[in-house]
Amino acid sequence: MTATERRKEAADRVRAAEDAVARLRAGLASVGVKLPSLRLDPASCAGNEPDPLVDLGRCSIETALRLSAQLEAKAPHDS
């Protein structure tokens, strides 16, 4: 694989991670949850072969409880 191909592949991975963050942000917003620190981890995007990680960041207790309530509401229930 050429250097140009490796750079393109790396850029594609970062772009896919950015898209994942955008989708997650939109999905959370649709249920009333906002994670203010949601972003890509910049260190994981560095270097020649980045392996991007999503940093969910910090949030208030209120936000954590809203997120928990949404997850619990969507969890399968035993019948």
Rank of each mutant, 00 (worst) to 15 (best):
E18I: 00
P42Y: 04
D12T: 07
A22C: 06
D51N: 12
L24I: 10
Q70R: 15
L35R: 01
E62M: 07
K8N: 09
A43P: 04
K74L: 13
A26D: 09
R58Q: 10
H77M: 09
L71T: 04
A22D: 11
L38F: 03
G57Q: 05
T4Q: 13
V14D: 00
R23E: 15
E18C: 04
G57V: 04
S37W: 09
D51I: 03
E9R: 13
E9A: 15
R66K: 15
V31E: 12
V21P: 00
R23A: 12
E18S: 11
D41M: 03
A69V: 04
R39D: 03
R58M: 08
L28I: 05
A22E: 09
L40K: 01
P52W: 00
R25A: 10
A22R: 11
A11N: 14
L67H: 03
Q70T: 05
L24C: 05
T4F: 14
P52Y: 00
P36E: 11
A69E: 13
C45D: 01
A22V: 01
G32A: 04
S79M: 09
E49S: 13
V54R: 00
A73C: 08
V54Y: 01
Q70S: 13
L28Q: 02
A3S: 12
M1N: 08
I61A: 14
E9G: 08
M1K: 07
T63D: 01
D51K: 11
A20T: 04
A26I: 03
A69K: 13
D19Q: 14
S30G: 14
D55W: 13
R15K: 15
L35C: 03
A26R: 06
A10C: 07
L56I: 02
A16Q: 11
L28E: 00
G47Q: 06
A16V: 05
S37L: 08
N48F: 06
T2L: 12
S68E: 10
A26L: 08
H77P: 05
I61C: 07
P42E: 08
A11V: 03
E18W: 03
M1C: 09
S37D: 15
C59R: 07
Q70I: 03
V33K: 01
C59H: 07
D55K: 08
D41R: 02
C59I: 03
I61E: 14
P50C: 04
L40G: 02
A46W: 05
K34D: 15
S37H: 13
S44L: 02
A26Q: 10
S37K: 12
A75Q: 13
G27C: 09
R7S: 11
A46P: 05
R15W: 06
E62V: 06
D78I: 07
E5C: 06
L71A: 10
P42C: 05
L28K: 02
R13D: 01
A22G: 06
R6K: 14
L53E: 12
V33P: 01
P52M: 00
L67F: 07
R25C: 00
S37I: 00
L56G: 01
P52Q: 02
V33A: 02
R15L: 11
A26K: 08
A69H: 11
L24D: 00
I61F: 12
A29P: 06
V21N: 00
A64R: 12
R58S: 11
L71V: 09
L24N: 01
D41G: 02
A20Q: 10
P52R: 00
A29H: 12
R66P: 02
A29T: 05
S60W: 09
